[in-house]
């Protein structure tokens, strides 16, 4: 029960972060980058595969939620080996997710080959790895393209070139807020996943030592399971409101 009370407070924190994201996104809706245009990488695939990797990460987290609920299920039957087996798979899933997030952060921070330009007249123009020599302007999620000599002229006279992302500026849109929220929300969630993995490892050690078999019940596994499902639940919302919408 107290795990539930904690989860409510945690859910309120995440709600506040996501609602702040929504409010500022509506405030700057004309210059906000389209997420489908930012997260386009997939390991070992050269080309534009928007959102595929985030979908894969979602799959990993849902899968690890399933293995966790199966561990809890084995706990109800007091099957120590079963609990240990499913817990190990859950921990593996957690590590895959954390690795994926590190990979995604890396690509987000490094950015594209040419980055973005602040043009002479102050406009913000992006480039595309797969359309070299072209410039793209974004307004209200509509994309306009400038190519050829005109693009070259604009680049030559540009005030500034921005590569990748940090807390002050980023090449994805003419506002630092997008990158700030990305780092904050996915970072906060990733830290929750990391904590969950650490807690799961501690519980696994206890299971392997037969602590819960001696105690006669696996309530501790169940509480950890609640936390782990909550992390999955938060990701469902982050996935929708950060990546899809």
């Amino acid at each position: 029960m107290f795990m539930w009370i904690f989860l409510i407070s945690d859910a309120f924190t995440f709600s506040a972060l996501l609602i702040a994201y929504g409010a500022l996104r509506h405030r700057f809706t004309d210059i906000w980058p389209a997420p489908g245009d930012v997260f386009t990488h997939f390991p070992f695939i050269h080309g534009n595969v928007p959102l595929a990797y985030v979908a894969f990460m979602t799959f990993v987290l849902i899968m690890s939620s399933v293995t966790m609920v199966l561990a809890v299920e084995e706990g109800h039957r007091r099957n120590n080996r079963g609990v240990a087996f499913w817990l190990i798979l859950t921990i593996v899933g957690g590590f895959i997710f954390l690795g994926s997030q590190a990979w995604e952060w890396y690509h987000f921070i490094v950015g594209s080959d040419k980055g973005a330009y602040i043009l002479e007249d102050g406009r913000f123009a992006r480039t595309d790895n797969y359309a070299p020599g072209s410039l793209f302007f974004w307004e209200n999620y509509e994309r306009t393209e400038v190519t050829g000599a005109e693009a070259e002229r604009l680049v030559a006279s540009a005030q500034k070139n921005i590569r990748g992302a940090n807390l002050v500026e980023n090449e994805y849109g003419d506002t630092p807020l997008f990158a700030n929220f990305f780092f904050f929300i996915t970072g906060f969630h990733g830290f929750h996943v990391f904590s969950g993995v650490v807690i799961n490892i501690i519980i696994l050690i206890n299971v392997l030592n037969g602590v819960y078999a001696r105690r006669g019940h696996y309530e501790q596994v169940e509480k950890t399971g609640l936390y782990w499902h909550f992390v999955d639940l938060v990701w469902v919302f982050v996935f929708t409101f950060f990546y899809l919408v």
Partner: peptide
Amino acid sequence: IFVVLTIVKAGYIVGFFM
């Protein structure tokens, strides 16, 4: 559509997994 589907997913996780 996304909002509705997200609430459906959240419902399944909270209702059946938790």
